[in-house]
Design a protein around this nucleic acid. Structure first.
Lengths: 141, 141
DNA sequence: CTGCATGCAAACCGTTTGCATCCCC
DNA sequence: GGGGATGCAAACGGTTTGCATGCAG
């Protein structure tokens, strides 16, 4: 039912952005993706990357992750799942904790909001940062 | 054990910022708080508000909420609880859903991260926005 | 040929920071 | 009088946007 071609053209830029995003299991920021895409399309503009990520997110082709930290991150896996974010380096990974689908029922009873969904974000220290662990307040990437 | 006076001076600005934050059940952005505080301290600077919010968050006196949306929000209630965010107007409210404390155990089994905590953010449409509901893509405050 | 999409650069917005001054201890 | 805190304004970083050009249908 979702034929993207009805909604917008499938340009080279869009295809490559989506390909590069699908290629990685990390959840890159727009800038990281820009760098990845630029290796194949050196003349692409940052604005194009942002515009297309936004467009694809609106059409449910990808996920825009509103996780902690200053930058938004993008995810080619659109099925429901949770994330964990490294408190040291800011990296975001998938985490395989079962989705608690009845949370929205508990929520519905607890508020007068009309519930749309929920999201869980874990925080922790990633394996890479566990070694060099001297303080908790390292730089966020 | 946490005597803030050991850590930093309790200036008028800090007291009033904390008072104003404690006064509301919403979770104001730094700018909203700046406006609130300015009514009592007209010459206070935005930078002072940011610096003090940061400082108080570091000392566990308040919570810095890293919820969706572009702006950070602040919360004088430091005990564990979840939030719900209006998909239309961006407002953030507390939601009285019991904290799932054993989530971090499930998480620990599912990742090689060293788990520190978790957070749940619900999304929905707030009562105020339910009336004027014509599209889902309204402006974010 | 028409209009959507792009590249580029400037604008924007929230936040941070440098610096001179202020004020509490 | 000394050091942290403030007010102010400029800088910053991520994202958005306006505009002239390009290119696919």
């Amino acid at each position: 039912m979702n034929t993207p071609s009805n909604m917008f053209r499938l340009t080279t830029q869009r295809q490559i952005i989506l390909e590069e995003l699908s290629k990685v299991k990390t959840h890159p920021t727009a800038n990281e993706l820009y760098d990845m895409v630029r290796k194949r399309l050196p003349r692409i503009g940052l604005g194009t990357v942002y515009r297309n990520l936004e467009l694809m997110a609106e059409n449910g082709m990808i996920l825009k992750l509103e996780v902690g930290g200053t930058q938004k991150r993008f995810d080619a896996t659109t099925s429901d799942h949770y994330h964990i974010r490294c408190a040291d380096c800011g990296k975001v990974d998938d985490i395989d904790v079962p989705v608690i689908s009845n949370l929205i029922n508990s929520a519905a009873n607890a508020t007068s909001y009309n519930i749309l969904g929920h999201n869980i974000e874990f925080s922790g220290t990633c394996p890479d940062c566990q070694g060099s662990q001297m303080n908790t307040t390292a730089m966020e990437q």
